[in-house]
Design a protein around this nucleic acid. Structure first.
Length: 304
DNA sequence: AAGATTACCTGAAGGC
DNA sequence: TGCCTTCAGGTAATCT
């Protein structure tokens, strides 16, 4: 699952494309793309100026066209969702199944977007649109100071697991690094942030930084679909301490790692190293079949 | 108004 | 063997 470390690895792999020009864009399915026709008409001929990561988003900045219908720079935003991949190929190479976007480059290669489940998003944005998309996001875990971390989490009543996954609190953590960080900090995922002592908050802040840095150093975690910009797997899956290791011994105390649903997500932890909070409400009661059968009237607009 | 839950999507895995 | 159900999780809409 592409989280901060995986997206960072992809961004680093694509950075050498700066200076290349897009010759053409082709699409497969476009139901995860906002205004594909704009991408098709505005990108060809443009030069890629810069590749950035913002949280889990990949940001590609394109030069403004010189005889200007659009005088400002243009941003292509790509979110990989769950199974999205952006991989460079020779133009002649056969396309993998579920490839939905082809960017032809001026060096004979293609940047292809593949996404089995199409939870990803793609759209063009003006600098103003980009600013408004990015505004609600929380702090980058790697740039975050301890004081800022305390300010953002210290008073919240939600469970730690929910807060770490909330992109409005921190941008870039997902299920893997949330669980790994909580294990490293020896904190139960159901603890309320506002109940943490100063020392525990510090432990969590440090743990997140260590885990994310370590994961980037190992090129991210390849559990199911994730590969980098050259199609290579990461290696952090070999270093996971708790994620998807339920039933196996905790690397710190040899107790058996458990798995439980917390904040709607599979959550992995060591019951001994990460003691249960005193008044952890066991589990919210399951809603009735009837209630969950209600359908949403409108499909969720994406990347807005 | 914060916190909790669910739909979206496809493939893999497990049950019978 | 094959059909069916469940599960995986990033995000945002919708609930409570």
């Amino acid at each position: 699952m592409p989280e901060l470390a995986e997206v960072e690895t992809v961004a680093r792999g694509l950075r050498p494309l700066a200076g290349r020009r897009i010759l053409a864009v082709r699409f497969g399915k476009t139901d995860f793309i906002t205004h594909p026709e704009r991408i098709e008409s505005l990108l060809p001929g443009r030069r890629l100026a810069e590749v950035r990561r913002h949280g889990k988003m990949l940001l590609f900045q394109f030069d403004p066209e010189s005889p200007a219908p659009t005088p400002s720079p243009l941003w292509l935003i790509v979110h990989l969702g769950m199974t999205g991949q952006l991989v460079l190929h020779e133009a002649a190479a056969p396309a993998a199944p579920h490839t939905h976007v082809w960017f032809s480059l001026d060096d004979g290669r293609e940047l292809r977007y593949t996404d089995i489940r199409r939870f990803g998003h793609m759209r063009l944005a003006s600098p103003e649109e980009l600013a408004s998309l990015v505004a609600p996001l929380g702090a980058d875990p790697l740039e975050l100071t301890e004081a800022e971390f305390r300010r953002r989490l210290g008073k919240r009543k939600a469970r730690l697991k929910a807060l770490l996954l909330d992109q409005h609190v921190l941008r870039g953590l997902g299920n893997i690094y949330a669980d790994e960080s909580l294990w490293r900090a020896r904190l139960h995922p159901m603890r309320q942030a506002s109940d943490l002592s100063d020392e525990e908050l510090t432990r969590l802040w440090r743990a997140i930084r260590v885990v994310v840095r370590e994961a980037i150093r190992h090129g991210g975690t390849s559990i199911s679909d994730y590969v980098d910009a050259l199609g290579r797997q990461g290696s952090y899956q070999k270093r996971l301490r708790v994620y998807r290791r339920n039933g196996r011994p905790c690397p710190r105390c040899r107790s058996t790692i458990e798995r439980q649903i917390v904040a709607g997500r599979g959550t992995h932890f060591c019951p001994r190293c990460q003691p249960v909070p005193r008044r952890a409400s066991p589990r919210a009661p399951r809603p009735s079949r009837l209630a969950s059968a209600k359908k949403m009237l409108h499909p969720a607009p994406r990347l807005r």
